[in-house]
Each structure stands twice: as structure tokens, then as C-alpha cells.
Write a protein that binds this DNA or RNA. Structure first.
Lengths: 198, 198
DNA sequence: CCGCTACTATGACAGCGGTCATAGAGGGTG
DNA sequence: CACCCTCTATGACCGCTGTCATAGTAGCGG
């Protein structure tokens, strides 16, 4: 996994997200992040004077924006966009990863929530913001598919909650079963929400 | 939170589950567990010669059995048992806790999965077993309500995945919104799965 | 060359973590 | 009393972690 984003700073944030999603926040050391990013250790205190908390927060923030961008990209790639198809695509990103590279990682936002929700207020807020970003992107996508405004938000929350939970279960079981199940079970419900009166 | 289960051993397992669900596995120390359980520190190596990993595994196992028992209890308490009502009750356990005692804790099994899935194989297996126990209890409950056999398993997985994810989101946002949303959105879908041909 | 800024390089420190070693109580049984 | 088994009590060890302090290098404008 040769990390080669542009600047050292970006690489460290990216590496932090990668390591966090694999081992959790507490088990991820700063020296480890720097090494993984092939960045000098001395740069840590230069780019992240706020210490580990700042680095973690930026990693979570990055993950939230990344997830939101993915939604838009999925949307553009779908030949016939429906809510169920979007959800299937979101799920497929995870089944693909798990089937090819193994069950090594989960969602970094989930990891940050589990590890820091009670101990670090700013990180909890970062996770909240990440979920909000992500949910907003999904809700907008649903609206664009004809889902009524007042239904888009709740359904987006349902999609993300189910996905996050299924990721957890799949990782524990080392089996994508939970992921494929939620996709199959939720698909019809989601598709039924599009307004066909137009 | 005066812990007063029967033996010191049981108390330590229980305390471990409590602390893990709040701070995560890595951030929970053994000395801390003993102190929280009002158990002598020297008992740690006596009751858990397998070290922290054993203690964590037992805590996860305990949580899985507890969750399964709760399902049976919810079932017995429901006046008119339907899948949607059971799910609403499972969700309500969490909204109640969050509204009364705050967003201090999540699911210990989720925490163990996030923190140990990659680093400790035995803990990952314990988490998998916990989910299996829990899912089995829910599936049996659904079957008892008239849900066809082949639908009970997938729906149970959907319920638990959605619940776990909603717990995560709710904790990050410090708002039970995600929990109430998944309950409301999934209720009709679940109730529609009961076989009414009898 | 000076001075300034951005970045890097190390080493040290203090704290905490899990684990081990060793020894001590308590209470039954022979 | 001697013996043993269960449980408890400490203290020490070692490794790791986040953070700080200090010093060094690179490049650039003047």
C-alpha cells in the first residue's frame, strides 16, 4: 500500500484514516502514521500542533467527505438511477473490498465514534459532521431520483445506519452475508419511495 | 454505578463490558476493570490467566447472551407481538438509555469488533458468536410470529445491522434521531413479512 | 551574507499498560 | 499441626505512547 498523495500532510491524514479503520483510534500510534505515510516524524508536531486529536479529527473529516463524493460518483455511474440501485452500489463497494483484500478494515468514522465519543468531544463532533455530510449527499441523491423531500432524509439515515451495522457484522463474521442481506432486503423498500405521479 | 453481581469474577466480566462499551477495548485497562468491579487486582491473573484477551472475550460473550435474553423478554412483554413491535422495543431500550443516562455507551460487541477484529482473532470470533446468538434469538422470535422460515434469518440480520448502525450514528450525533428513524422506517416492512395465510 | 520562514531530525521524558514473580492470608482436610 | 488449594497482595519490569525541547537544514527575499 504505497501511499503517494501529494503533500506529506495529506498523506498523513490519509494514512491515519487507513490505520484507524483497521486497528481503531487508540491502537494507532502517531509514529506509526508517519511511517505508513513515509513522512518524517518531525512533521507531526509541525502540521498537527493540536496533537493526535487534531490528526484523528482531520482523518474523520476526510473520510466523511470521501464518502459523500463516492455517493455522487455512484450516482453518475448508474445507468438507471434508483434508490435501491444506489444502495446496492454503496454496499458493493464493501463487498468488493472484503472479497478481494480481506476483512482488514471497517469504517473509520465508526471506529472514531466507538473509541472517542466519550473521551474526546471534538472527535465526536467530527464524526457527527462526517455522518451529516454523508447523509446529506445520499438524501440529495434520493431527491434527484424522485423521492419526496420529507422522505429523503429518513431513508438516507436508514441506508447509512444499515450499511454501517452490516459492515460491523460482516467484519466480525468475516462474511459478506450481512452486507448482501441488507442490500437485498432494503432495495424494494427504497425503490418504492420514488414518487411516480410525475 | 455500584456493581454488585455475585462473585468477583462475574463482576469483573460485567465491568469490562461496561467500560468497553464506553471507551473501547484498547482504552480500557485491566486495573481499571478491577477497580470498577471493586475486585482485588490480584484476582485478575487468577481468574483470567489468558490475560486481557480472555477477559474481553468473556465480556463480549456475556453481552451476546444478554442481548439474546433481552429479545426473549421483549417478546414475552409485548401484548400483541409483531416483528415491527419487537424491533421498536429493541430500539426503545437504547433511546431510553440515551435519553435518561446520556450517550455515554455503545454496544460492547461493536466496540470489540472495531478494536480487535484485525489484531485478536479470538476476540473477533467471540464477536461473531455474539452476533450469531443474538441474530438467532431474533430469528426464532420472528418465526414464532408467523414469519416464514426463509425470511426470518435475513430480516433478523437486517434488524440487528440497522440497530447497530443507528446506535453508532446516534452516539456520534448525540441525538436519538437515527434510532427512531430506523424503527419507524423498518416497522412496516417487518410487519409485512408475517404470513397471513393461516 | 543576513535573516526569516518552512520543514525536518532526534533525543528525552513522564506516564501508563499488560504481564510476571513472589509471597502472603484463609480455610478446609488428613 | 501439616498440607494444600483457592484467592489476594504487591512490586517490579519492559515496552510503548504522546508530547516537548532543541537543534538542524533548505530555500528565498533583501
Amino acid at each position: 500500500m504505497a501511499v503517494s498523495g501529494r503533500g506529506p500532510r495529506e498523506r498523513m491524514v490519509f494514512s491515519a484514516a487507513q490505520l484507524i479503520r483497521r486497528d481503531g483510534v487508540a491502537a494507532t500510534g502517531m509514529r506509526e502514521v508517519a511511517a505508513h505515510a513515509r513522512a518524517p516524524r518531525g512533521s507531526l508536531q509541525h502540521y498537527f500542533p493540536g496533537g493526535k486529536e487534531q490528526l484523528v479529527n482531520e482523518a474523520v473529516d476526510w473520510a466523511g467527505r470521501y464518502a459523500a463524493k463516492r455517493v455522487a460518483r455512484f450516482l453518475a455511474a448508474l445507468p438507471e438511477p434508483t434508490p435501491g440501485a444506489l444502495f446496492a452500489e454503496m454496499v458493493r463497494q464493501w463487498t468488493d473490498e472484503y472479497e478481494t483484500t480481506g476483512f482488514g478494515g471497517g469504517c473509520p468514522v465508526a471506529a472514531a465514534t466507538v473509541d472517542c465519543a466519550e473521551s474526546a468531544a471534538s472527535t465526536r463532533e467530527a464524526a457527527s459532521a462526517a455522518f451529516t455530510h454523508w447523509t446529506g449527499a445520499v438524501a440529495r441523491a434520493l431527491s434527484g431520483m424522485g423521492v419526496p423531500e420529507e422522505r429523503a432524509g429518513p431513508l438516507a439515515t436508514l441506508m447509512i445506519s444499515s450499511l454501517e451495522g452490516a459492515i460491523l457484522v460482516a467484519r466480525a463474521e468475516q462474511d459478506v452475508r450481512a452486507l448482501t442481506t441488507v442490500s437485498r432486503e432494503l432495495g424494494p423498500l427504497l425503490d418504492a419511495a420514488v414518487d411516480r405521479t410525475g
